[in-house]
Write a protein that binds this DNA or RNA. Structure first.
Length: 842
RNA sequence: GCCCGGGUGGCGGAAUGGCAGACGCGGAGGUCUCAAAAACCUUUGGGGGAAACCCCGUGUGGGUUCGACUCCCACCCCGGGCACCA
């Protein structure tokens, strides 16, 4: 008899697996491949429960896939550039690299203690020059394709992180994703990747991602924000009110409401404003609005319930459909970064315009009326404007009948309506507008004014302008002598930035911004396929073999950020010719968060449960099984110690069972034919079927309950059959099956039971997933519930192949069924074979 | 406001339209022990009943169905994403 001692067996097998190279993989065309990937960690310290959950889920999937005969790639690495390293370095008066590499070592040790089946030969650390050099190389490919742009625009500035941020990194109420500071808008020249060129494809291809959660696809579609509509050109008038040559274009989703445009709006940041009002009596008022808008944070600016403010510019534009002159105002609710920064205001059809019109006493001519609108009898058929106000309290923005709309009067208006297409066509014929599509998605701002990142491989030459660093000069190495504790960046190091132009050879200045860390995570999964390649980011053949990732697992917080950027990178690399697929992740599992008392765990809140403590007390196997058993993987989970003891109890029971069976003589000479043996065979078949199926469906919590039920069933057999009459061969087969089923969840314990206790050959992790005998699930007698008027009133036991008449007769004969049917007429009897009998009486 | 999730015992959670509450935690009672721990056994949605059984029960109200946690309609509550996006 041996005792289950996780602390003795776990380190033993971790070392053995490593020396045996058990998890080392290479391309093998003879087996189906499977790429199982968990989002790589940021080395912020030791691992937390979220990591334990994420990587355990992936490990179970990887191990189960291997046992099912697949060639499984299951790598790990570190997303190692980024601000926390700088902050930590400042705090501890050291270098970001020191902190980062130390944390990587700590985390790697913890991962080893968890028993994860990684191929450590493929590890990447994004702060290693061997990795980031290829990130720079890919950047140059983007540049060659015209997807890199340096431009001035209003950008998000985090005052605490002292850098600009991408739109995707501004979250919630306009705060920095990392430090939660309120973000400011600044007009700055920055580096962008033109993700907007792929907006339509990124949206369309969401439909092909059938293995992704709807939630994530909805969030991405929402973020991309496609709007169908039209561009409409308004002719600008001079100060005297006469038409000029200049036109201002607006974007609208409702060209059908064009006849209801009674004023015209410009964003406070609109470049035309200065010249429109310069030297006029309106200048002071307009400047007031512009200055006020500039002062406000984006949060203040975007709260929709505040009073909208604006000022008349003194100018007019001509509405192309009716030639009407409408006043041009500047308004603080118009955004420069969406559409064209100019808006045609239709107050009867848009709540914001309505509020603005009411506040400033501007006309509100109705143009689209609901069928039951009291105004309709009066205005139906009115082609010319007879009314410039409405008796409403709110704008009407749904579909309806057009009135006061010239030749379009009487048509149906609304989004994607007849009138919308008719008006747009009318404009297009005259060169005054066209159908168009607008996206909410903005280009990806990738430059960061920070040290600890991948240097942008570019040179500013006074003669040649922006020049890419030639490929053979890569990598642009991030120098280690930058002292960020003194607030230094690359811009403080002339020996870094002083260089010569690769084109003309003249004195030039190297770019000192680094790239957003999300550029690293946008392609790391490709590097795993060929991680040690020194001649290219990866061998297309290796990527062709392993990619796309068959199962990706990670947190929902990357629903937009990382998952959108990676999709973009993949599509560009496909167009570059480095791969032949456009989507990197075929199936995605977004695992729920691990919380404590409903709150996210964090070091700053001090509510962290340390996995290392749990490993020390209960062992890694118990922790793995427990965190999976607590909740389905995709749901949030509130950490509790309550069931951990119970999980250890289960592992002890399973251990004891296998240990006892292993100690029995190989054969008892008894062959189990009785009901107990039959029940045991059935339990084994049910466990194998359920456990495997549940893993494939990611119902890992019920997969573990299937194991528990199986263990209970074997104990039932041991209890119910007298010691001398037990079928030892049957029990040994049951124990073997159990150990193999447990292998993905509790790999160390399963290995010890397999190799040491059961004395089987080879590793349990190299075994084929057990097969089950479907005939064991078939029994000759079945028990059917009998319902009377929908309520269960009894059960009949009948032969499995009994005829319907027999079943009905037996059901109707049940005493309790008789009691509920006497005095009533049996109207109908439904027999669902193998399921139930339903009797309807009345 | 728009778009996604979710609401089941004391708790975590199970249920291809077919016996609601699997499995586990916790609780109660018991066996073993001088005692305790561990282990094992019984029991555990609420109410009624000596029992057989009966009634109620999956956020609310309707509907479809022989039968609804599951499907449909309307609503309430909780969580998340987006949001002066024209």
């Amino acid at each position: 008899m041996t005792k289950y001692d996780p602390h003795a067996i776990e380190p033993k097998w971790q070392a053995a697996w490593e020396s045996e190279g058990l998890y080392h993989v290479s391309e093998d065309p003879s087996r189906p491949k499977k790429y199982v990937l968990e989002m790589f960690p940021y080395p912020s310290g030791d691992i937390h429960m979220g990591h334990v959950r994420n990587y355990t889920i992936g490990d179970v999937v990887a191990r189960h896939s291997t046992m099912n005969g697949m060639n499984v790639l299951h790598p790990i690495g570190w997303d190692a550039f980024g601000l926390p390293a700088e902050n930590a370095a400042i705090k501890s008066d050291s270098h970001p690299a020191t902190w980062t590499y130390a944390n990587i070592e700590t985390q790697a040790a913890s991962f080893r203690r968890m028993g994860f089946s990684y191929d450590w030969d493929r590890t990447v650390r994004t702060c290693d020059p061997e990795f980031y050099r290829w990130g720079q190389w890919i950047f140059l490919k983007f540049w060659e394709r015209g997807l890199v742009e340096r431009k001035s625009s209003p950008v998000n500035w985090c005052p605490s992180c002292k850098t600009v941020l991408a739109n995707e990194q501004v979250i919630g109420e306009g705060v920095c994703w990392r430090c939660k500071s309120v973000v400011q808008k600044r007009e700055l020249e920055q580096w962008f990747l033109k993700i907007t060129e792929y907006a339509q494809e990124l949206l369309d291809d969401l439909d092909t991602l059938t293995g992704w959660p709807e939630r994530v696809k909805a969030m991405q579609a929402n973020w991309i924000g496609r709007s169908e509509g039209a561009e409409v050109e308004f002719t600008l008038c001079d100060t005297a009110g006469d038409p000029t040559e200049q036109r201002i274009t607006v974007f609208t989703t409702r060209p059908d409401t064009l006849f209801g445009c009674s004023f015209f709006l410009l964003a406070p940041e609109h470049p035309l404003i200065g010249e429109l009002v310069a030297g006029t009596e309106y200048e002071a008022n307009v400047r007031g609005i512009v200055d006020m808008a500039a002062k406000e944070t984006s949060v203040e600016r975007s709260s929709s319930d505040r009073t909208k403010r604006g000022a008349f510019t003194g100018r007019y534009v001509i509405n192309p459909v009716n030639g009407e002159k409408v006043p041009v105002w500047v308004a603080d609710y118009v955004l420069m970064e969406y559409g064209t920064g100019a808006v045609m205001a239709v107050p009867s059809g848009d709540q914001r315009d309505f509020d603005f019109a009411r506040f400033y006493g501007l006309p509100i001519p109705p143009v689209v009326l609901a069928e039951d609108d009291p105004l309709l009898p009066e205005l139906a058929g009115a082609h010319e404007r007879v009314r410039a106000d409405v008796p409403w309290d709110n704008a009407y923005d749904a579909g309806g009948i057009l009135v006061q709309s010239g030749e379009f009067t009487g048509m149906r208006g609304g989004k994607k309506s007849e009138a919308m297409h008719a008006v747009t066509a009318w404009l297009a014929e005259r060169g005054l507008g066209r159908e168009t599509v607008n996206f909410r998605l903005r280009d990806w701002l990738i430059s960061r004014q920070r040290y600890w990142g991948n240097p942008i491989p570019a040179v500013h030459c006074p003669t040649c302008g922006l020049v890419p660093v030639p490929e053979d000069e890569l990598p642009v190495v991030l120098p280690m002598n930058v002292d960020i504790t003194k607030g230094e960046t690359l811009a403080d190091h002339p020996e870094f930035y002083e260089t010569t132009c690769p084109k003309c050879g003249g004195a030039a200045r190297r770019e000192t911004d680094t790239m957003d860390t999300f550029t690293c995570s946008s392609w790391y999964y490709l590097r795993y396929c060929d991680a040690r390649n020194d001649d290219a980011p990866f061998d297309p053949a290796a990527v062709g073999y392993w990619m796309p990732v068959d199962q990706y697992i990670g947190g929902i917080e990357h629903a937009i950020l990382h998952l959108l950027y990676s999709r973009f990178y993949t599509k560009v690399l496909r167009d570059v010719g480095l791969c032949d697929f456009g989507e990197p992740f075929t199936n995605l599992l977004t695992q729920g968060m691990v919380k404590l008392d409903g709150a996210t765990m964090s070091k700053s809140k001090g509510n962290v449960v340390a996995p290392e403590d749990m490993i020390a007390r209960y062992g890694a196997d118990a922790l793995r099984a427990y965190i999976l058993f607590m909740a389905p993987p995709d749901k949030d989970l509130d950490w509790s110690y309550d069931g951990l003891e119970g999980m250890r109890r289960f592992l002890n029971r399973a251990w004891k069972l296998v240990d006892e069976v292993a100690a029995m003589p190989a054969s008892s000479g008894v062959s189990g034919h009785g009901a107990a043996a039959k029940a045991l065979r059935r339990a084994a078949a049910a466990a194998i079927a359920k456990c495997g199926g549940d893993i494939e469906r990611f119902q890992l919590n019920t997969a573990i309950s299937a194991l528990m039920e199986y263990v209970n069933a074997v104990y039932d057999y041991r209890r119910d059959v007298p010691a001398g009459s037990q079928d030892n061969a049957l029990l040994r087969a049951a124990a073997r099956d159990l150990v193999m089923l447990m292998a993905p969840f509790t790999p160390h314990m399963a290995e010890e039971l397999w190799r040491t206790v059961l004395c089987e050959d080879g590793s349990v992790h190299r075994q084929s997933w057990p097969r089950f005998d479907p005939s064991a699930l078939v029994s000759n007698e079945i028990e059917l519930p009998v319902q009377v008027n929908g309520k269960v009133r009894g059960r009949v036991v009948v032969a499995a192949d009994a005829s319907e008449e027999t079943v009905v007769a037996a059901a109707l004969a049940l005493p309790n069924v008789v009691a509920h049917t006497t005095g009533k007429t049996v109207k109908k009897v439904v027999v669902v074979p193998g399921r139930l009998v339903s009797i309807v009486v009345g």
